[in-house]
């Protein structure tokens, strides 16, 4: 039941927007979460990764403190680093997004590692995920699953 016509109209537009763009950018106050995608997994025993960007258009720094998703028992921001020809990966802790900057989670760098998957992540599916920010609070993101060999939204197979 809608209280006003404006609400109904807003909901209608929101639904249309979601239908038109499955990987729609998510706006939460001054934060914009863009280009989310997950790498398909092989079974459930191996971890996989989610990539996205967080743009902070506000005037204050915000901090990504936690990630939760019904798709995995554990979701954590990790960082891959290649230094002196050696690749290493470690938990990244909190991700600070200063005012006016963008945090980029991409292959070879920061990524949200999904561990203890509930089900295999299959190409074409969408998983839901909540990014918890210090200021913006919880931000829900719909994350499309691309192929295991995908390198980003441009090459979505």
């Amino acid at each position: 039941m809608f209280r006003t016509n404006q609400t109904a109209l807003f909901v209608f537009i929101a639904i249309i927007a979601v239908l038109l763009t499955p990987a729609a950018d998510v706006y939460a106050s001054d934060l914009v979460v863009e280009k989310p995608w997950a790498r398909a997994s092989i079974g459930v025993s191996r971890p996989t990764a989610v990539y996205l960007t967080i743009r902070n258009g506000g005037a204050v720094t915000d901090v990504l403190t936690m990630v939760t998703t019904p798709a995995a028992g554990m979701a954590e921001v990790h960082k891959s680093e290649v230094k002196d020809g050696l690749a290493r990966m470690s938990p990244a802790g909190n991700v600070e997004v200063s005012a006016g900057t963008t945090a980029i989670l991409e292959p070879g760098g920061l990524h949200i590692m999904l561990m203890e998957l509930k089900n295999p992540l299959k190409k074409g599916e969408t998983i839901s995920m909540t990014l918890h920010f210090e200021n913006a609070g919880p931000v829900d993101v719909a994350v499309p699953v691309y192929g295991i060999a995908a390198s980003g939204p441009k090459f979505s197979d």
Binding site: R39, I42, R46, P47, T48, A49, H78, S80, V82, A87, M89, P107, G108, H111, M113, L114, I148, A149, A150, S151
Partner: peptide, 13 residues
Amino acid sequence: TNCPDICPTTLSD
């Protein structure tokens, strides 16, 4: 094979 980032990226390349 438990590598979720660097290895899939290189193998897909």
